[in-house]
Write a protein that binds this DNA or RNA. Structure first.
Length: 341
DNA sequence: CACACGTGGGG
DNA sequence: TCCCCAAGTGT
């Protein structure tokens, strides 16, 4: 594959680039590295449509990495609520503070230095180096892997083809316009060289594509494991218009997020005898690696139990539950608990 | 290297 | 309803 590939891709990009809030037009000076970074973190395993409103909210509320570094952790986590993969938000905060304290609020331009920051892996470091700093970094994301697997008709399953795919991506990367090239390649994967029903008829590099005859054959995937089933119970404890929320442990599922208490028993040391629990129904939620059937139990208490009976709870106004920053699972459970009955 | 880690949209 | 998946990272 020669520079011809990149030339055709860039020409197509010049005429068809998507307009996105974090993006500069083709040929324009690079965007603020803060915007590139924020968008790249939000876009990890996340669709453009889902990321856009969050990006706009964050940029308005925290216009610079210094502003984000100075933010309350809780406020940032709440603003991220609903976007998923919450380790990204925890690392976002850590990264902002490292940049603020160790780099004076200016992102390093060096790919290796970027790679060393929290939440920035090989892909994001390369993307930032290319898009924000104009370096010839080799950007390899899911789009690039799919395009390379098709162009070269790679039969090796994706998980075992990393080195091969990276080599092809390196050979294809031009020395000029690295940022535009990276985005052009990802645009191609997102709009034409899609996983299903690729639009080969409109593809600028279809003539060079070895997978053209059967594009959906590539990339080859390993067989997927079955998704296990889990059952849990969430506890809605309401007193005087307030509901008990907890902050989940920093690590693990929905780590660091506010939530309803979950477990086999209500989250108290106190004695629950005599309390009238109502079964409010079940919420079904599909995670990447398991399916969850969450039963929702509700108790309406007359008096607030002593604080020492809770590990780390807070009473949130039921009328403002949407502002609590609950992840989607618990936002659903809250709607279930508040349903008329 | 394999697995944990969210969510909502599309076919 | 169900399966796939979307600009990955950390462990």
């Amino acid at each position: 594959m020669s520079t011809c590939f990149a030339a055709k891709l860039l020409a197509h990009y010049d005429a068809n680039a998507r307009t996105l809030p974090w993006r500069s037009p083709p040929g324009a000076p690079p965007p603020d590295p803060y915007r590139v970074w924020l968008s790249e973190i939000m876009l990890q395993q996340t669709t453009v449509a889902a990321a856009i409103p969050y990006f706009n909210t964050f940029i308005t509320r925290w216009p610079s990495v210094a502003a984000l570094a100075a933010a309350d952790d809780t406020a940032v986590m709440a603003a991220w609520a609903g976007l998923g993969y919450y380790a990204r938000a925890r690392n976002l905060i850590k990264c902002a503070r490292v940049v603020a304290l160790e780099y004076g609020g200016v992102f390093p331009a060096d790919e290796a230095a970027l790679r060393a920051l929290p939440g920035i892996g090989a892909y994001t470091a390369a993307a930032m180096a290319a898009i924000a700093f104009g370096a010839r970094a080799v950007v390899v994301d899911g789009n690039v892997k799919r395009v390379m697997a098709r162009v070269h008709a790679i039969e090796t399953p994706l998980s075992q083809a990393e080195v091969q795919l990276h080599a092809h991506a390196t050979a294809a990367t031009p020395h000029g316009r690295p940022g535009d090239y990276a985005q052009a390649l990802m645009d191609l994967g997102a709009t034409l060289c899609t996983p299903r029903a690729p639009k080969c008829g409109q593809c600028p590099v279809a003539r060079a594509c070895k997978g053209r005859a059967d594009p959906t054959r590539y990339p080859v995937h390993a067989p997927k494991a079955p998704r296990p089933e889990r059952r849990e119970t969430a506890w809605w404890i309401e007193v005087g218009g307030h509901v008990l929320l907890v902050e989940r442990p920093t690590n693990g599922l929905l780590g660091g997020m506010r939530a309803l208490p979950v477990g086999d028993a209500p989250p108290m040391i106190a004695d629950w005898r005599g309390v009238d629990w109502q079964n409010m129904g079940n919420v079904r939620h599909i995670f990447t690696h398991f399916s969850l059937d969450l039963a929702v139990q509700r108790a309406m208490l007359l008096a607030r139990p002593a604080p020492e009976n809770f590990h780390a709870g807070l009473w949130w106004p039921v009328a403002k539950i949407e502002t609590a920053g609950l992840p989607s699972l618990f936002a659903k459970a809250a709607r279930c608990a508040m349903a008329a009955s």
